[in-house]
Design a protein around this nucleic acid. Structure first.
Lengths: 204, 204
DNA sequence: ACGGCTTCATTCGCCTACAAACGATGCGTG
DNA sequence: CACGCATCGTTTGTAGGCGAATGAAGCCGT
């Protein structure tokens, strides 16, 4: 029977809006139903497993709003990144990290690599590779620090400068589009709540 | 002159709370000041560049609240991921992606790989590698679909089951800790705003 | 039943991404 | 001046991460 074919289509979370606290249980109910409908064989074992999962989740249902908030943080971050990569970065063969690094150098003009890594939120080792890629495309200059041969200074080439001048307005416009469904107060509230999360985790 | 040594320490964004709309200009002012203090040589060129950057940013200052919200989404997502990796996942040699994949399989019991990739928010190709890693550790079973030889079904081994039973409560506790500075209403509001962003970008 | 079309998972090349190890450089003290 | 120690950036090894290409498998119209 084709019970595994048509009815096995799961609720795609990237399209299903129902993952807040109230709806999470409903979503899980749909999950169990779909799973029960999907299995075909060994009904008892899978049903027992699903039952056990339900008991586990119900035992921790008090933190459902936390789960909803956290999982949405991650999904939103990925959505923003993917959207910007497609609409702004991909036409110029730039990755997200490459863009962030360019942006940091653009803002600071001339900056040591360790500071670029800290500002961009990547490790030193990662920056070495990104910097090499950007330099090979003629976007970034690499100069040894005149006073300390251990350090390296990065700056944009004229080509990099003109690219940033062209891309930054588009990037900013996409940022504005992403939060376009929220009014100014909601945007500030969102930023404030997220900052509270960051402080809580990174120390503050 | 040690002007490049002590005074070149930039405001570390991972620790500086000042990146909301009001403070962003202040942060940039500090940036320009630090840059001007840092350069030592070719003062005019760098100052002219900074001046040009200031003009560009001021011309787009209207979207500052959007920038603050978006950048905080990304920082918060990274903070959550790093925190959970350190506190819960690293002791068991699990990566974030590996955890998410395990979680999806745990919830759905038996699920096709394409659905796992969709639920976990990764590509099919990435899942192939992650699945291989998890299978090599005896956490995941891989079975060809009985009715369609193209598809592959994933499920947890008993070892994987017991690992999830142990780790999920800890994971959930860390999620709750991350948003612990917000009350329930703020958590739901945060989830709702983020969901609005996701809908806006992924279609809805 | 046979030819195209679709839909899977996998593979490939390239690029992050991090921790740890490494080598080079600078600094401070004896 | 020379020794140890701290601080850089880079390298190494392992694991994600994606798009595009690949090949196997099913579907469907003729």
């Amino acid at each position: 029977m084709a019970s595994t074919e048509g009815s096995s289509h799961l609720c795609d979370p990237s399209r299903c809006p129902c993952d807040d606290a109230e709806c999470a249980l409903g979503r899980y109910a749909r999950a169990t139903a779909a799973a029960a409908d999907r299995q075909g064989l060994d009904t008892r074992t899978l049903a027992a497993t699903e039952q056990a999962v339900a008991e586990r989740l119900q035992g921790l249902a008090l933190n459902m709003s936390a789960t909803a908030a956290i999982s949405n943080i991650y999904r939103a971050a990925n959505a923003v990144r993917n959207h910007v990569e497609r609409t702004v970065l991909a036409p110029h063969d730039l990755t997200w990290t490459g863009w962030v690094v360019l942006w940091v150098i653009w803002i600071w003009g001339r900056i040591e690599t360790r500071h670029v890594a800290a500002e961009a939120g990547i490790s030193k080792g990662t920056l070495t590779g990104v910097q090499k890629t950007l330099a090979s495309r003629g976007l970034v200059n690499r100069v040894v620090h005149p006073d300390d041969a251990r350090r390296v200074l990065l700056s944009l080439t004229p080509h990099g400068e003109s690219l940033m001048a062209e891309l930054f307005p588009r990037f900013n416009a996409e940022e504005a589009f992403a939060v376009g469904a929220l009014d100014d107060a909601a945007q500030l509230q969102l930023a404030r709540s997220l900052r509270a999360v960051v402080h809580r985790l990174e120390g503050g």
